[in-house]
Design a protein around this nucleic acid. Structure first.
Lengths: 185, 185
DNA sequence: CGCGTTCTCTAGCGGCGCTAGGATCGCTGT
DNA sequence: ACAGCGATCCTAGCGCCGCTAGAGAACGCG
């Protein structure tokens, strides 16, 4: 039986290799450069092995996105603990994440439509990130439902992040925008 | 000289034909189905004709997006005039636009990164839509800069629209979210 | 009518995501 | 020790993509 375990271990290592390679390639040259051929070349296997791990290219990107959600959750947690005002800290950390890891943020939100949210099989990392936001919002909720208010706050952050990233909003006064948003919460 | 004018007119008609065909095809089968081959077939010309009008496929999508901005601006204007509370009306109209014309909204915000915003050559329709939002926000701005506050409000709406569209937020309680957002403005 | 420009098409390039089918490797039972 | 047999992996190729070069047709003009 140990043989199968070793094989399974090797499989999972290779799966990590694929996901990491996809992320590195995307961070180096953008998601357009992430093709199955280039990915296969980078991991030194042939194309078809990708399909023995993932259903298709989208699934690989979704795996990168899940990693991204885990990192985002970790950074939000750290920011909530460290900042004088948790909500400010979390919001700043969120915008910083989107700004410094654009490739991850794209995978998480712009691409990969079929990641289950608010479902039984939702990856834990996704829930965790939202949880961090909710705990930061809760003290400011007043009579409002904290969960729903968190959704609104998250949407505002997401909007700021994506509109800025897409060149729709000039980057320079982002701090001012964030201040106005926080003042209203 | 009249001959050149006639030709120019025909060219512009064909350009409209291309943009409309792209939009119709996208609305019928999604943007993935909009390929240069299928588009050429639909307008009953060969592929290279497309490239005598537009630099590439992205430019065609950008043209559809500009049409979208014009429609959005028109709907926001109507909503601002008709609603009891302008801000509520405009916000509702914005979310309704994203919900009922997902294909246009995608072209405007998810794709086509290289539409100039806040630049000399920014299409007027883009400015107009933002102007409608700004006029609706202004009475609620208090001591805040209305333009910046409008950006924040727009970002919040955009976030709600995209997160809902991507399945990140369940659609059912969108009205409740909008109420919470409006209450904070 | 013949000429030159202007337009449009056929054909093809390199690359894409993905898959079928055969070769090869490594474990297993005799 | 070795033949048999799955599991594993690669070569080759399908149909499609965005885009372009170059041939040929259509059209206004002298």
């Amino acid at each position: 039986m140990a043989i199968q375990e070793r094989r399974e271990r090797a499989r999972q290592e290779r799966e990590r290799l694929i996901v990491d390679a996809a992320r590195e390639l995307a961070e180096a040259e953008g998601w357009d450069a992430v093709t199955t051929r280039r990915l296969a070349e980078r991991i030194e296997y042939s194309q078809p092995v990708l399909y023995s791990h993932f259903k298709g290219k989208d699934a690989i990107m979704a795996a990168v996105a899940v990693d991204g959600f885990a990192e985002l959750a970790a950074e939000l947690r750290a920011a909530r603990g460290a900042a004088a005002d948790p909500l400010t800290g979390v919001a700043t950390a969120y915008l910083a994440f989107a700004e410094t890891r654009p490739v991850l943020y794209e995978a998480m939100f712009t691409h990969s439509v079929d990641l289950a949210f608010a479902r039984p099989d939702t990856p834990a990392a996704l829930q965790a990130g939202f949880g961090e936001l909710r705990e930061a919002v809760r003290p400011r909720a007043g009579d409002d439902d904290p969960a729903v208010l968190t959704e609104v706050f998250w949407a505002a952050l997401h909007g700021l992040a994506t509109l800025t990233r897409g060149g729709r909003l000039p980057r320079e006064i982002q701090e001012q925008r964030l201040a106005l948003l926080l003042a209203r919460f």
